[in-house]
């Protein structure tokens, strides 16, 4: 992984104090409208060097999609500076289009009534991809995304997972240097998800494509991204390694103990009881601490039958982070 601080030249995506304010008018009475501003993105700065896979996460309405839409030139920022491959997206949208690939998880770019292959032929002509290059890229995508049997099928007959794979291929035929994925695994079954992740990992490793993805599925992040950015209320809350997120969010592991009989909440140092349900109790302890002393203490003081340890999930970590910030603010 490149050092982000020193290797400024290779910063492929640059955002500096980027803002997007929406003017929302709400109906109030017959003709009166109440105007108020919604700061969808409120001063975000970050850079992404070439070849990195970055996860961009946050709750609904945090500003993830708005950021992606500004990076692709769909939306014009209200303030700040954006450069992607040295290009200002909203000003030189068509020029940028050649260098980026975009997949909207909930919005297909494929032609509904036509066979899948026709959408690719359209990309071939629209992006003016040289014939040899087109064939090569198409063959690679067809093989890796397992599309061979689907090329002649009208898009409307594809399953969600098949269509997503088709969409990803469509976004890659013109050799984009960066691929933006907005919820690429939403609604997919486990097998499709695994295939999409495997493909993205391979793409990043072999072609060096920079990948920026938003997701609700934390496994996407865990399996793909070394770096994760958390956004909420239009502000960047965290930017760094996935592991660091656990520390910052003071994430906790959970020890689930099954006792011989129902007991009042256990009193164990270094842990607190989350929940009691009959003879089963849930104990939370810091993710950074070891479970061993805890287990020893429980086993020596109480009639223990069985136990298991649950790793923290990032969703909870992020939720905790939000809660902390809310208390501070």
């Amino acid at each position: 992984m490149t050092d982000r601080e020193t290797d400024a030249v290779s910063d492929f995506i640059e955002l500096e104090d980027v803002r997007k304010v929406f003017d929302v008018r709400r109906k109030k009475g017959f003709l009166r409208r109440e105007r108020h501003e919604v700061r969808a993105v409120d001063g975000i700065s970050f850079t992404v060097p070439r070849g990195e896979i970055v996860g961009y996460i946050g709750p609904n309405g945090a500003g993830k999609s708005t950021t992606i839409k500004m990076l692709t030139g769909i939306l014009t920022p209200s303030g700040g500076r954006i450069r992607v491959a040295g290009i200002e997206p909203s000003r030189e949208r068509t020029k940028l289009a050649h260098r980026i690939g975009v997949v909207f998880g909930q919005r297909t770019t494929l032609w509904w009534d036509l066979p899948l292959i026709d959408s690719y032929k359209l990309a071939h002509r629209m992006y003016r991809i040289p014939d040899a290059r087109f064939r090569e890229n198409l063959d690679r995508c067809v093989e890796l995304l397992d599309l061979a049997d689907l090329l002649a099928v009208p898009v409307r007959q594809l399953s969600l997972g098949q269509r997503m794979r088709g969409d990803i291929a469509a976004a890659l035929l013109h050799d984009p240097e960066v691929l933006y994925l907005d919820e690429p695994t939403i609604g997919l079954d486990v097998v499709s998800k695994a295939r999409v992740r495997e493909f993205l990992r391979d793409l990043n490793a072999t072609a060096g494509t920079t990948v920026l993805l938003t997701t609700h599925d934390l496994q996407d992040i865990e399996q793909l991204c070394k770096r994760v950015m958390v956004i909420d209320h239009g502000r960047l809350m965290y930017d760094g390694a996935l592991a660091g997120l656990h520390e910052i969010g003071e994430s906790e592991r959970t020890l689930v103990v099954d006792l011989e009989r129902e007991l009042p909440p256990l009193d164990i140092t270094g842990a607190r009881v989350l929940r009691v349900e009959g003879p089963r109790q849930w104990l939370a302890f810091p993710a950074t601490a070891s479970a061993a002393p805890l287990v020893t203490e429980v086993a020596s003081s109480y009639p223990l039958v069985d136990l298991s340890v649950r790793e923290p999930d990032i969703e909870a970590v992020i939720a905790k982070m939000y809660a902390d910030r809310a208390e501070l603010g």
């Binding site: 359209l122 629209m126 992006y127």
Partner: peptide, 26 residues
Amino acid sequence: ARATGVGGLAAFRIIAAMWIRSTMTY
């Protein structure tokens, strides 16, 4: 036409042809 993009007329032609084919599927 932009320097690297397909021109407006060409884009129109390509997309219009796609829609004609699209309607012909029914």
